[in-house]
Write a protein that binds this DNA or RNA. Structure first.
Lengths: 125, 125
DNA sequence: CAACCATGTAAGGTTATCTAACATGGTTGG
DNA sequence: CCAACCATGTTAGATAACCTTACATGGTTG
């Protein structure tokens, strides 16, 4: 009889995620194309997102707004998944690493509290 | 920059709530008809439920399974909202009160942890 | 046993989402 | 400087998911 809402549960429809992240459907689908998220699908093929997906999207959005491109963002997420990725070619530059650390801090704060930035919540009242 | 997910945020579509509660759409709409919940509506008139709505629905479901009827359930929720309802007619019987207390305990436990019973979550893995 | 209660189900209509394709403005490397 | 690419917009056509309304139904119950 526990009742945790798992951050991996696919609870959210496209329109809600658009509101939570302030991204367009096109953007969200594009990021999925690049495997930054992999939302579940209903039987009828509709995307269903988890809170983790929303967090990832917010992180991607921040990176893009800081001028990063998809390629670098993908590297960052790859490195997160497998920190010992000695396999790949050139590493991330110093300034890039600084950007990432900065974003990591924000992300950590997000995680600590609960799930969505206040600015985004105001849309629901 | 807080990030709480409010229990009152209308995040969830009908199909997800059906899965979370194991109620049919008909049942959920019927309970809404009786004002036990009042989900938000999108511009296009789709219902959007909050986590609080889900909790209420689970509570209603428990009461019904215990053999209560809508009338009594409505009274319970009315009394919850306004405990000093000296206005209305006859009170709830002793056995009813015992049922309610029992359910209150469960509900309290639910609230304490997080949001959905484990049995319900398993459907999402 | 007539009436009601909670739910199922069907019909017909609308909205939200899907994929695929093409359009476009902003970089950027040669 | 411009050709190519990148991230995103937009459109079209299809369909899944949701809506309301209405009628059907089995289980209580006065």
């Amino acid at each position: 009889m526990s009742r945790e809402i798992r951050r991996t549960m696919p609870l959210l429809s496209m329109s809600i995620v658009m509101q939570l992240t302030e991204l367009s459907a096109r953007q969200i689908r594009y990021y999925e194309e690049h495997h930054l998220i992999e939302p579940h699908r209903t039987e009828g093929n509709r995307r269903m997102f988890s809170l983790n997906d929303v967090d990832t999207l917010l992180e991607v959005k921040d990176y893009l707004e800081q001028g990063m491109n998809m390629a670098k963002i993908k590297k960052i997420f790859a490195k997160k998944k497998n920190p010992v990725a000695t396999t790949d070619e050139q590493d991330l530059s110093d300034s890039e690493l600084r950007q990432i650390m900065r974003e990591e801090m924000r992300q950590a704060q997000r995680m600590q509290k609960s799930s969505i930035r206040r600015g985004d919540l105001s849309r629901f009242y």
